[in-house]
């Protein structure tokens, strides 16, 4: 099925890329936006995905954790249905995941005030691997089960304790692990869907962001009037 759709998507991408910017009206994005997602999942669920970096236990942890960070609720889609775990897994395979965007030469001074910035020697791939293992160890010792197997209320409590730095891990500060996971979860929820998260532009719809439309000359002077169009993505999906 996806084989039929892919050439058309690629074609539209190329067309979009060669249209002179000055001729792109707000309607252009609408015109190309009737493209169905190649592998449409069930309503309320992210598309199927096999993680590349995370192992099964880690994948279970990530899925359980992000559901608390951005739950599905009355305000809109949540992290699970928008594919945030897929986003995080795919980010691990990028230069960011490998810490290649950061200055990583030592010595590492880890006892300074937080205002002087990140000073650990760990890169995102390490932070997740060691953070998940440490949290699962802590949960097993103190609560008898790994994080993903705990009931929801206990999971929530563990996350709050990590955020507040009330749990101490040997491998890395629990707070650091939590803040990376939260930051990446929000990125996945709000970044363009081509990165794996924000599926069906659920994150953008939650907040009311029109995505890659990026052309509002016709609406600047519409004071206090709701913008009427839903989001479009970089690859031309319509929300």
């Amino acid at each position: 099925m996806s084989q039929e759709k892919e050439p058309r998507r690629r074609f539209l991408r190329q067309v979009l890329a060669i249209v002179p910017a000055t001729t792109l009206g707000g309607t252009t994005a609408v015109a190309v936006s009737n493209i169905a997602s190649a592998d449409a999942p069930e309503p309320g669920k992210a598309r199927a995905y096999q993680p590349t970096y995370f192992n099964a236990a880690e994948w279970a942890f990530i899925n359980a954790a992000v559901d608390h960070l951005i739950p599905s609720d009355q305000y809109g889609a949540g992290a699970l249905e928008t594919g945030v775990p897929e986003f995080i897994d795919r980010q691990m395979e990028t230069p960011y995941g490998a810490g290649k965007l950061w200055y990583m030469q030592g010595p590492f001074h880890t006892d300074l005030v937080p205002e002087l910035g990140y000073q650990l020697s760990l890169v995102p791939r390490d932070i997740y691997r060691q953070g998940i293992a440490a949290c699962n160890d802590w949960c097993t010792k103190n609560l008898g089960k790994v994080f993903a197997d705990l009931d929801k209320a206990k999971q929530l409590d563990v996350l709050k304790q990590m955020e507040g730095g009330k749990i101490a891990f040997d491998a890395l500060p629990a707070k650091t692990f939590f803040s990376f996971m939260l930051g990446n979860t929000k990125e996945g929820y709000f970044a363009d869907p081509m990165y794996g998260g924000n599926q069906k532009m659920g994150g953008w719809k939650m907040v009311g962001f029109p995505g890659a439309r990026a052309d509002y000359l016709d609406w600047v002077d519409q004071y206090n009037v709701k913008y009427p169009y839903g989001p479009v993505s970089i690859l031309g999906e319509k929300g």
Binding site: A191, A212, A214
Partner: peptide, 15 residues
């Protein structure tokens, strides 16, 4: 070029 340019993750977040 548009629409490649309007990618918040790539430009604002990953720099």
């Amino acid at each position: 070029p548009y629409p490649k340019a309007v990618d918040e993750l790539k430009y604002s977040v990953r720099g």
